[in-house]
């Protein structure tokens, strides 16, 4: 035991320059990522309003969330609905379009990459969708549909509580060809071309078989990375809802977990309760990510 510790210490001393290089980054990483996760988990069992000391209250916050807080349950439901639809669609869209784009000549490929990636790149300007989905006759979509005679009255795309969550999904999908999309484009370029020739000899007949049996298995690391990016993003929806529909949304129709957390953390200063919401979001995304990772993982 003692010998082991001595060895460890010697190793640490030998690598001290490495630790110096790590220090600035990990100081920030621990202060603003790791410690907040731990602090949040602890605070979720307390009642804390920033001014007074936190008071330990056991599982009360969690009980209140699931048993008394109807708005939280709406937020949970909306977030899941949103993530289960936009997550998979955006993931396969990233993959599918990267696959199609990959076969084009380089010039066209880079132009299309730019066009497809541009919305993800300029995420702060998603409010331009208000021009399109504006509920009056000046809205581009209403004007267009009324011109064609498909609708007679303007549709309140963003205010109508029956449809606004789905309108948000369209906007989210518009912004979702992001980092994973780039990773997939890169992934397709790394594949050894000779594999395709070998595949053709082995009886692979069409593009779909080529994709399924050769291409995808060779880019599993990218597929895992992309899945993590998309899952994390699809559960974190908040900004587009608050800015396009308003906060709170009519009948909480576009209320999400992150918005609920914002409500309690930044408006009501119920930090313990807000932390419990954060813990739930953490558990959901991490477990789904681990699950997806298991599914894609090479056997």
């Amino acid at each position: 035991m003692k010998r082991k510790l001595e060895n460890l210490w010697r190793e640490i001393k030998r690598n001290r320059e490495s630790y110096f290089l790590l220090l600035p980054y990990f100081l920030l990483f621990f202060t603003f990522v790791v410690i907040p996760v731990i602090v949040g988990a602890v605070l979720s069992f307390t009642n804390y309003n920033i001014i007074q000391m936190p008071r330990f209250i056991g599982w009360s916050n969690y009980k209140r969330l699931f048993l008394e807080d109807d708005v939280f349950l709406i937020a949970l439901q909306n977030t899941f609905k949103f993530a289960l639809i936009t997550g998979p669609i955006s993931y396969f869209a990233c993959l599918f379009f990267a696959w199609l784009i990959n076969e084009l000549p380089p010039k066209i490929r880079s132009i299309l990459t730019l066009l497809y990636y541009a919305p993800a790149l300029s995420s702060a300007v998603f409010f331009i969708w208000t021009y399109i989905f504006s509920g009056d006759v000046y809205g581009l979509l209403n004007g267009f549909l009324m011109n064609l005679g498909i609708i007679k009255e303007p549709v309140y795309w963003l205010q109508d509580s029956r449809i606004n969550l789905y309108v948000l999904m369209v906007i989210q999908l518009w912004m979702s060809l992001g980092t994973s999309f780039l990773a997939f484009i890169a992934g397709f370029q790394t594949i050894d071309k000779s594999l395709y020739e070998a595949g053709a000899v082995d009886g692979i007949r069409n593009r779909w078989q080529e994709l399924w049996y050769i291409t995808l298995p060779s880019m599993k690391p990218q597929l895992i990375f992309g899945a993590i990016m998309q899952v994390t993003a699809s559960f974190a929806v908040a900004d587009i809802s608050a800015q396009l529909i308003g906060f709170p949304s009519p009948l909480y129709s576009a209320h999400t977990i992150v918005l609920h957390m914002w409500d309690y953390g930044s408006i009501r200063y119920e930090m313990g309760y807000a932390s419990a919401i954060a813990v739930i979001l953490f558990l959901i995304t991490v477990s789904i990510n681990q699950g997806v990772r298991k599914i894609i993982r090479p056997d």
Partner: peptide, 17 residues
């Protein structure tokens, strides 16, 4: 591991820190 949850998770405690 930290890529697996969004920055929103850490916002509240980060505010306190």
């Amino acid at each position: 591991f930290s890529l697996m949850f969004s920055g929103y998770v850490t916002n509240i405690p980060r505010f306190i820190i």
